[in-house]
Design a protein around this nucleic acid. Structure first.
Lengths: 144, 144
DNA sequence: GCGCTTGTTTAGAATAGTTCTAATTCTCAC
DNA sequence: GTGAGAATTAGAACTATTCTAAACAAGCGC
């Protein structure tokens, strides 16, 4: 059975070309490393693995390649929109909406039953102590 | 109407005492600043605001106070569990479970209809380009 | 093939946010 | 008032990431 959730390394070139980018050996190796062991490695971990195959690659290139792959939607970055942690005294269950244009964060009310529903997707052996839901996008009416 | 979503500054002392901690002026001012303007400030922003009232406070103390407030569940940290960004080639819609004991991250399948349901909580003028759902907790059966 | 333009990689410096360290100050119990 | 532990402070250190400037490589028109 063919998995649809990832792109084979072979079509990497096509995907990159679609975005006007080149399929370089570095990009191929970085992507290959991500496909080979799917354990959500950090950039540093990717760097370490990639160097087994390509010892001269630089860390900056690994960062560049990862960013490129994310831009082409070949890879997802978890915990993205890094930067300063934000603090919030609202103790209601709620999600956050992060406006990518203004950089502002808004609370979004979350019906408790929906939160319960979301928690139900967890396999029984996962005990979640917290759930964080973050939307990112733009708003149409907020004061500019 | 009394809001139940936050603790008044007056009961801050009690809450802290429950955790065996003291209500210091610094903690009060930091908490007060968070209550006064609920715009999810960063630690730096809190620092700037706090200094208006208490010019001698240090940035380290602001960080300490914020951490204390988070520990007492008086404040929520958004984008917490900072640290290196992780990369993931799974393009199915899915959530992430972060095991706080082992530091490992697992994919959790997300039924598309649930994702749609979650997106519906957004007010109509918010256009989300992405949703990120992160669980944190522990697993009962994964290999240690 | 030759030179041009543009895209890519590289090493190292720089930056941002946060945490650590060691010294000092404060608080409370006795 | 004294002593023990808690909290604060300034500044150094650390980590993940981004920037910079130079070198390199690839495709294109000739």
């Amino acid at each position: 059975m063919i998995s649809h959730d990832t792109i084979s390394p072979d079509s990497l070139a096509r995907r990159l070309a679609d975005s006007g980018l080149r399929a370089t050996p570095q990009r191929e190796v970085v992507f290959g490393v991500l496909l080979k062991k799917r354990d959500h490695p950090t950039a540093d971990e990717v760097y370490a693995r990639v160097r087994n195959e390509m010892p001269t690659i630089s860390l900056a290139t690994v960062y560049n390649c990862l960013e490129t792959l994310v831009q082409c939607h070949l890879v997802r970055a978890v915990n993205f929109e890094r930067g300063p942690t934000r603090y919030c005294p609202n103790l209601h269950p709620h999600a956050h909406f992060h406006d990518e244009e203004t950089g502002e964060t808004y609370d979004v009310d979350l019906p408790p039953e929906l939160l319960a529903r979301v928690k139900k997707v967890l396999p029984s052996d996962y005990e979640a102590s917290s759930v964080e839901i973050i939307f990112r996008g733009k708003t149409n009416s907020h004061a500019r």
